[in-house]
């Protein structure tokens, strides 16, 4: 018998048991959690007709802008949407926002995370220039992790390269 070998294998087995136990005991998320802004996530409440509701912001003001391939520049179309977002945020001071940056699937995971962060940050800077207090605007990048359109061509990619302004209560 070889003790060293024996010990190694025994430890491996104990480990297996520990993993099985731990798989379902992860605690919940931390304190800065917010609901995702994608409609499928059901994170938006309120009546669309009420101009101060998040639903109005999402659907009438427009909660998202789109980007060109590998770009984080705000297009003129995007700028007009962001102008409306800024106006709404100035009138509805009870809300803060998390700005999500997203990328299409044509890129490596890490690069897309960084690219999404650039996009979210550009949106944030634009809104700050339009008078929104910086402390009301957080940013997060989802890289290519949260596509909303799932085909593998430009018609979907163009929808996925987006910045989404997700409201949260201040």
């Amino acid at each position: 018998m070889n003790l060293a070998m024996n010990k190694g294998l025994t430890r491996a087995l104990m480990l297996t048991g520990a993993l099985a136990l731990a798989a379902c005991t992860n605690p919940g998320a931390g304190d800065d959690v917010y609901l995702s802004g994608d409609p499928s996530a059901g994170g938006v409440a309120g009546v669309q007709g009420d101009p101060s509701s998040p639903a109005y912001f999402q659907q009438t003001v427009g909660d998202r802008i789109l980007f060109a391939v590998n770009e984080s520049t705000i297009s003129p179309t995007a700028a007009s949407t962001l102008d409306l977002q800024a106006d709404w945020l100035l009138q509805n001071m009870d809300f803060s926002a998390v700005i999500e940056g997203h990328a299409d699937e044509q890129g490596t995971r890490e690069y897309n995370l960084a690219l999404g962060a650039r996009r979210a940050s550009e949106v944030r800077q634009y809104l700050i220039q339009r008078g929104i207090a910086p402390n009301r605007l957080k940013v997060v990048s989802f890289g290519k992790e949260r596509p909303i359109s799932i085909c593998s061509d430009e018609s979907c990619y163009s929808q996925n390269r987006r910045g989404v302004t997700v409201l949260s209560a201040s």
Binding site: M14, L15, A18, A22, A29, D32, V33, L113, V140
Partner: peptide
Amino acid sequence: YETGFPRIYVLDVASVR
């Protein structure tokens, strides 16, 4: 993304902590 934002974690394989 457990806090909603990407963060780096270190996990101990034996304890899964």
